[in-house]
């Protein structure tokens, strides 16, 4: 039985650089279990770098990342993949592959070298397809889908991975507004239904405020603020983080903060 806290992700004293340039300097952050956290910030502030370090795709110069009580950098690769999934930015599907075949590949960490396809695998794939609403299109080739459907298929792949912790790098880029909301909604449904920890790099501040419990704002000189949306998206913080002069008003529908650039 896994304890609730085992799904909390924690960065301690992370320092990451490429060559001479330090992108992230001594950053400590908590990503509480069962919560949705969005990482925001201007281009080049290290949002994706941070997310990649949380997923062990890059090794930091200093510091560590823990998932529950385990340091992810000393965990077995497959064990980690059963607890934490990452959807990188702009993935490219093999030519002609169908939705179902793509989503099935999300089951890789659960399969042994010669083990056959199991009931649990089939169930996880079916559930993921249902969650993203692509059950009827599962045999269609990916290339024939619309942009929004395609992105939902990629999300289904990591949902089928069936992990209590889910990392997504800009899952809404290139989508129109309707599809952005669609994708974020289905991620939130998974979060609410199963208490999955979600960490997402996002561009759109207003959508982040709407869908996420916690926001982390990174600026050109490190972290600006972290906390509830109304505490993070303030006029001062936006000035520091983005160099943007903006007014923050309550969203007329949800009451969450809404950024209106001046």
């Amino acid at each position: 039985m896994m304890l609730e806290n085992d799904n909390a992700l924690k960065a301690e004293g992370l320092t990451i650089g490429y060559g001479e340039r330090t992108v992230i300097d001594n950053l400590s952050l908590d990503f509480p279990a069962g919560r949705m956290t969005a990482i925001l910030g201007p281009n080049g502030c290290g949002k994706s770098t941070l997310l990649r370090a949380l997923a062990r795709l890059i090794t930091p110069g200093k510091g560590k990342v823990t998932l529950g009580s385990d340091n992810i950098f000393s965990m077995d690769t497959r064990a980690l993949a059963r607890r934490l999934a990452i959807l990188p930015q702009a993935s490219k599907a093999p030519e002609g592959i169908t939705v179902a075949d793509l989503v099935r590949r999300g089951r890789t960490p659960w399969r042994g070298l010669f083990s056959a396809w199991s009931e649990a695998d089939a169930a996880a794939v079916a559930r993921a397809l249902k969650e993203v609403g692509l059950t009827d299109m599962s045999e269609r080739p990916i290339d024939q889908l619309s942009g929004g459907q395609r992105q939902r298929a990629w999300v289904a792949l990591v949902l089928a991975q069936d992990t209590p912790c889910l990392l997504l790098d800009e899952p809404t880029t290139w989508l129109d507004l309707t599809h952005q909301i669609e994708v974020l909604s289905l991620i939130r449904e998974r979060n609410r239904a199963q208490g999955v920890t979600v960490v997402t790099v996002l561009h759109d501040l207003n959508l982040a405020a709407r869908f996420y419990d916690t926001l982390v704002l990174l600026g050109p000189n490190g972290m600006v603020a972290a906390g509830a949306p109304q505490d993070v998206l303030t006029e001062d913080n936006l000035m520091i983080g983005f160099g943007l002069s903006a007014m923050v008003v309550p969203d007329p529908i949800t009451g969450t903060p809404m950024v209106v650039p001046r």
């Binding site: 990649r52 997923a55 497959r78 993949a81 999934a85 990452i86 993935s91 093999p94």
Partner: peptide
Amino acid sequence: LGSALARGLG
């Protein structure tokens, strides 16, 4: 599926 996603899949 690309090396990043492959590593994410363990």
